[in-house]
Simulated assay, not measured.
Amino acid sequence: MSETEDLAATWDRRSVPHAATAVLQRIEGFSATPYDDNGAQAGGTWTIGYGTTRDAKGRPISPLTPPVTEAEAESLLLRDMAGAAQDVARLVRPPLSLCQAAALISWTYNLGGDALAGSTLLKRLNAGDLAAVPGEMRKWIKQGDKPLLGLLRRRWAEAAIFRGLPPAKACARGWAEIDSLDDWPAF
C-alpha cells in the first residue's frame, strides 16, 4: 500500500496496510543491534530492527544476534506484520476499513494473535460494537502487573488510528498529549 492510501477504504484481508507499517516503525523505532525490550527486567524479550523477536531464519533474537540493516529490519517487520494481519483476518468477522485494520494489526503485532483471540476487544468487535474497541485497547497497557506510560501512548495511538486519525498524527499526539497514566485525550 502507498503512503497516500485511502484509510477509509475497506481492507482486503490480505494486504498489510501501509498505515500499519508506518505506525509500527514510528512506535518501535529502529535498532540495528539486539536490545532487551523490557529494559533488562526479569523475563526480558530480546528484539532487533523494528521490534522483531525472531531473525530471518526464525531463531529467537538474543544478545549475540548479528546487527541488521534498515532494509533487513523492514523485511522482518513485513514478515511479522503479515502474520499479525493473518491473525486479524482470521479472527475478526466484520469488514474493516484500512485504518481499523492497521490499528488492529499493530495491536496484534505487539501482543500476539493469542491475545487477540482471547480478548474482550475481539468479542465486542465481532458483536458489532466498534465504538468499544478504543476503550478495550486502553486496557492493554501493562508489562507484567505494571502499567506503562509508553504502552498507554501506544494504545492511544492505535485507538486513534482505529478511529481514523492518520498514523503520524496519532503517534505525535499520543506522545505530546499523554503525560500520565490517567491521560486519554479525546480523538
Rank of each mutant, 00 (worst) to 15 (best):
L111C: 03
G150S: 07
P63K: 15
L96T: 08
I105G: 02
P166I: 15
A32L: 10
A73M: 09
D183N: 06
A117C: 12
P166E: 11
S75M: 13
R93N: 12
R154K: 08
A101N: 04
L149Q: 04
A115M: 05
R163E: 15
R155T: 06
R26V: 13
G49E: 03
F162E: 04
R79P: 15
N38Y: 10
L165M: 14
R173E: 14
W175R: 10
R163S: 11
T10G: 11
R153T: 07
G144V: 05
R163Y: 12
W46I: 10
I178K: 02
W46G: 04
T108H: 01
Q100H: 10
M1I: 15
M1T: 14
Q41M: 14
A89T: 10
L111N: 01
K169G: 12
I48H: 02
V68Q: 01
R79Q: 09
R138G: 00
L125P: 08
T21A: 13
P185L: 01
C99I: 06
T10Y: 13
W156R: 04
V92Y: 05
G128P: 06
S62L: 13
W11Y: 12
P166V: 12
L104D: 00
S15P: 10
L24K: 01
T53C: 05
N126P: 01
E74W: 10
K142T: 02
A32H: 06
G144T: 06
A103I: 11
T108S: 04
P17W: 00
G135P: 00
W140A: 03
G144K: 08
P167M: 01
S180A: 08
S62D: 06
A170P: 00
S62W: 07
L7M: 09
W175C: 10
C171T: 14
T47D: 06
A19W: 03
Y50K: 04
G83V: 04
D114G: 15
Q100E: 13
L165H: 09
G144R: 08
P60H: 14
E3Y: 14
V133Y: 02
C99A: 10
P147V: 03
D6W: 08
T33S: 14
A172M: 11
E5L: 11
P167D: 00
V133A: 04
V68Y: 01
W107F: 09
S15Y: 09
M1Q: 12
F30E: 06
Y35P: 04
P147Q: 03
A20C: 08
A8Q: 12
E28Y: 00
H18L: 12
V88S: 08
L98M: 12
Y109H: 06
D145P: 07
A127N: 06
A160I: 08
L77D: 01
V92T: 12
V16W: 02
W184R: 03
D80I: 11
W156Y: 09
P167G: 02
P17R: 01
Q100W: 08
D179I: 14
E72W: 11
G83I: 03
R154F: 01
